[in-house]
């Protein structure tokens, strides 16, 4: 009795898995380390992840920075919340004055007030994250209509999304750069109008967060 049911469902399952498979993002993670040694972080030391916000047309998303923090954080790795650090060291990490280069960071750390404040928080590493998620204009045609007898959407639309982020790790004690990780995640999202609109969204940002967060955690866990 059950066999015919299974056979009739198979094409639907196949179509569904194909559609969902099409929504997967392609994520590439590149890394550069200044040397082969793993990055050591003691139990009493912390790291902070900060988003760059000095660009004119985009801001590194706070949610994305939080997402990476949650991936990196563990029992051994203590992550200081971004806003807590920015407030603790105000105004030196505001977009207008935040150090963009190691040279500028060294100048900043030469100020005993700033160095003392960072030491109070036991901050050892600073990770700058810069990037954004962009959506390309949608292609295809989808129209929705409503009338006395009901309504619905018909058609098909698709759009590409890409998340490109780079993380740079600075060692505040040695005042050096310890490594860089770059993640590039791309995918296509679909909206199918079959009476009800069915969105099939590609989680490019989430994949970028998993890729970048996982790689950074490996850095610190050796």
């Amino acid at each position: 009795m059950n066999a015919p049911t299974v056979i009739s469902l198979s094409p639907a399952l196949l179509a569904c898995s194909l559609l969902l498979g099409g929504c997967g993002a392609i994520t590439t993670v590149d890394e550069y380390r200044s040397n082969d040694s793993s990055i050591v972080i003691e139990n009493n030391e912390k790291l902070a992840i900060l988003g760059r916000r000095d660009s004119g047309h985009y801001e590194t998303d706070r949610d994305f920075v939080e997402c990476i923090g949650s991936k990196v954080s563990s029992e051994r790795i203590h992550v200081m919340p971004e806003q807590q650090l920015i407030d603790a060291i105000y105004p030196w990490f505001e977009p207008r004055v935040a150090p963009k280069t190691l040279g500028r960071l060294r100048v900043l750390l030469n100020d005993p007030l700033i160095e003392r404040r960072l030491n109070q928080h036991q901050l050892r590493y600073l990770i700058w994250v810069d990037g954004s998620t962009e959506s390309a204009p949608a292609s295809g045609s989808l129209s929705c209509a409503i009338g006395p007898g009901g309504g619905g959407c018909f058609g098909f639309a698709q759009w590409d999304k890409s998340s490109i982020y780079e993380a740079i790790i600075w060692d505040l004690r040695d005042r050096t750069e310890r490594g860089r990780v770059r993640v590039d995640s791309q995918g296509t999202s679909y909206l199918i109008g079959a009476v009800a609109p069915i969105p099939l969204l590609t989680p490019v940002k989430n994949d970028a967060c998993n890729g970048l967060g996982g790689q950074l955690r490996d850095y610190f866990e050796g």
Binding site: Y90, P91, E94, P95, R96
Partner: peptide, 10 residues
């Protein structure tokens, strides 16, 4: 407002 602060302090 935070940016005004940064500008003023510098």
């Amino acid at each position: 407002l935070r940016d005004v602060g940064a500008k003023l302090l510098i």
